[in-house]
Deep mutational scan, measured.
Amino acid sequence: DLSGKLIIKAQLGEDIRRIPIHNEDITYDELVLMMQRVFRGKLLSNDEVTIKYKDEDGDLITIFDSSDLSFAIQCSRILKLTLFVNG
């Protein structure tokens, strides 16, 4: 049953990962930690990372904090994230 699940599709460069999320109350910090685990070796804990999501118009919107993240989650059951490393 995928109805209650949130799917995160995260892209870093050419690498795209699909991550099912069971807890929608994820904070921004938890998201960043999850991305560091998912992209281990490509995304380091001291990297400056910018996370953006695609909205319904196809625009890339920056996620700065947990309220941005929860808004993005409300918009779509499949959250398409693009990561930019400013390392």
Rank of each mutant, 00 (worst) to 15 (best):
F64I: 06
I19A: 01
L12C: 04
C75H: 15
K54L: 09
T50M: 03
A10R: 01
S66T: 12
R40L: 08
R17Y: 08
R17S: 04
N86W: 01
R40I: 13
I21Q: 02
S66M: 03
T82W: 09
A72G: 02
Q11K: 07
D65Y: 00
D59N: 15
V85T: 10
T50P: 07
L43F: 07
K9L: 15
D65N: 12
N23S: 10
H22D: 11
S45C: 07
C75V: 11
M34A: 14
Y53T: 04
D15G: 02
D15T: 14
G13E: 06
K9Q: 15
D57A: 13
V32D: 02
K80H: 13
M34P: 01
S67W: 09
V85D: 04
V85K: 12
K52W: 05
M35I: 14
G13W: 04
C75A: 12
K5E: 14
N86E: 06
H22P: 13
S3M: 09
Q11D: 01
D59E: 14
R18T: 15
M35E: 00
E30D: 11
G4P: 07
N46G: 14
P20C: 14
G87A: 11
F84M: 06
I21E: 01
L81Y: 02
I8W: 03
G87D: 11
F71V: 15
N23H: 10
E14R: 11
D1F: 10
E56D: 12
E14F: 10
L6A: 07
M35H: 01
T82D: 10
I7T: 09
V38W: 04
M35L: 10
G58H: 03
I21K: 02
R18C: 15
V32C: 13
R18Q: 15
L60A: 05
K80F: 09
R37S: 10
L83M: 04
P20M: 13
T27M: 03
D59W: 03
G4S: 12
A72H: 04
I63Q: 00
D29M: 08
G87I: 14
I7M: 12
S3H: 08
S67F: 04
I16T: 14
D68P: 01
Y28M: 05
K54H: 13
F39Y: 06
L6S: 08
I61L: 14
D57R: 15
L31F: 04
G41V: 04
